[in-house]
């Protein structure tokens, strides 16, 4: 009987794990850690500075975004600076491959770090970055990613550089400024 109850408590535990695993598995389905080289976020297209210093952005950008999204939608507070549309305006790129260049997309910029850190976000299913008169009028100038962008990522020298750039313990420091 002892062993039976052990099996049963294991089953209960297993249940919990399966439920949790199912949840996280579904929500992080495309996550792929492993042998992806350190990220190399594409340069912002516009502006010299981000809405916050870079180290703050790196650390807290999702808090800012989530906070702003709740404020905008649920409380009706508009005009604050962490707008996803603003990120699109500075960070998004167009490419003839994507909707014939009619859509700007943040995907490459955000995905650099996210695929490395196994984070998956669904924002761009809805926040498409479509061009609209008045918003993103500079679209024509917004360059597509360099064609060799994929290979760039595998560039050893660049990765070493980035490692230093991102690693707070290295001499260059993690400030990235």
């Amino acid at each position: 009987m002892r062993s039976a109850s052990r099996i049963l408590s294991l089953t209960i535990l297993g249940f919990a794990i399966v439920i949790m695993g199912l949840g996280s598995g579904l929500s992080a389905a495309p996550a792929q850690a492993g042998e992806v080289p350190l990220p190399n976020p594409a340069k912002a297209f516009k502006g010299e500075q981000c809405v916050e210093p870079i180290d703050v952005m790196r650390r807290d950008h999702f808090e800012f975004l989530k906070h702003q999204r709740d404020e905008t939608l649920r409380e009706g507070i508009r005009g604050k600076k962490y707008s996803l549309n603003a990120c699109i305006d500075c960070h998004a790129v167009t490419s003839p491959d994507i909707a014939g260049g009619k859509l700007r997309t943040l995907k490459p910029f955000c995905a650099e770090c996210h695929s490395y850190a196994a984070v998956s976000i669904d924002c761009f299913e809805c926040h498409s970055g479509a061009v609209q008169p008045g918003i993103g009028s500079e679209i024509g100038k917004q360059s597509a990613l360099p064609p060799n962008h994929e290979q760039l990522k595998a560039d050893k020298a660049l990765i070493t550089l980035l490692k230093g750039h991102l690693d707070p313990t290295s001499p260059q420091g993690g400030t990235g400024q």
Binding site: M1, S5, L8, T11, I12, F15
Partner: peptide, 14 residues
């Protein structure tokens, strides 16, 4: 789930 599985466990554990 919790209650019924606990109940089952109690019936099985002397």
């Amino acid at each position: 789930f919790v209650i019924v599985l606990t109940y089952l466990w109690m019936m099985m554990e002397r």
